[in-house]
């Protein structure tokens, strides 16, 4: 009996240790990077294109990142939402749905470097969009599509069936029911999907590096190339150009991720409250 007890305690100890490692890894990364980077961040660093003396500000990379986020979300969100609506509200279970689901799952599993290769030959070369915001955003839209589809699907499924019955029972059409009753209830969930996608876009490197290119200047239009913050960090680290600037850029990326996670959590807790 005693032996079992001490065995249990040993196992418990290992479990606690694992959890501490998990949280520890996170804290280690956050504290180390942010404490080294935060001092390097200045208003000039964020708001300037050039800072003289060969030093540079990261404004063009911020603009490129925002640009890619915007276009990607504009492309992927409607497709993702429509797709989820079809799967939840229209599709009858069967082969078609199984194939769509398998494709969505597979899309989510494809490594970003493969998306990058594909974007490079299809959008950049075959469609001749060049290394541009458009090529990058189109490639990323395909990458984030599964996230938006899944989160939207889940939030549509969480809408009680009584709402559907109530609306259809009044003689409202199916489309009206979806538009006026179901979608409004599902909005927090859909937003969570969009926010998570933005997080993925901000953090993406391999796919965007092969399709957006790496030019340092400010993008002026859809067909211009650019460099996102994550790609910039890759450059700084890979080429060993400036570790100070790399820490600062990594800190900014981490801060963005913190904000995104905070918003996503707030939305999710609102969604849970609404469900109860």
């Amino acid at each position: 009996m005693k032996k079992r007890h001490s065995m249990d305690n040993l196992v418990k100890g290992i479990i606690y240790l694992s959890s501490i490692v998990t949280v520890g890894v996170l804290l280690w990364i956050l504290i180390y990077v942010v404490s080294n980077g935060i001092g390097e961040i200045s208003w000039d660093f964020i708001s300037q294109t050039q800072m003289g003396e060969g030093e540079e500000g990261i404004l063009p990379y911020i603009v490129s990142t925002l640009y890619v986020i915007l276009i990607t979300i504009i492309i992927a969100t409607p497709i993702g939402i429509f797709s989820a609506i079809y799967l939840v509200e229209y599709a009858k279970p069967g082969k078609v749905v199984r194939v769509i689901r398998f494709a969505t799952e597979s899309l989510a599993g494809i490594p970003s470097i493969v998306f990058g290769l594909y974007g490079l030959i299809f959008f950049v070369t075959f469609l001749n969009f060049g290394w541009s915001i458009l090529s990058g955003s189109l490639t990323l839209s395909m990458m984030v599509l599964p996230t938006i589809v899944r989160t939207t699907e889940e939030s549509l499924k969480a809408v009680p069936n009584t709402f559907r019955e109530g609306s259809l029972g009044l003689g409202a059409s199916k489309l009206r029911t979806i538009r006026k009753v179901i979608l409004p209830s599902a909005i927090p969930g859909i937003l969570t999907g969009v926010i998570l996608s933005i997080g993925r876009i901000v953090g993406e490197t391999a796919a965007i590096y092969l399709t957006l290119g790496t030019v340092k200047w400010m993008p002026k239009g859809l067909m211009d190339g650019g460099r996102t913050l994550a790609v910039h960090l890759y450059y700084l680290a890979k080429e060993g150009i400036s570790f100070e600037k790399a820490y600062a850029t990594a800190t900014i990326l981490i801060l963005i991720v913190l904000v995104i996670n905070f918003i996503a959590n707030k939305l999710a807790s609102r969604l849970n409250k609404a469900k109860q």
Partner: peptide, 19 residues
């Protein structure tokens, strides 16, 4: 749709829309 306009329904559990 016309049918349901003419034949209305009240459900077991009150199901007002969230509006």
């Amino acid at each position: 749709i016309k049918l349901r306009k003419r034949v209305g329904m009240v459900f077991q559990k009150p199901n007002p829309f969230p509006m």
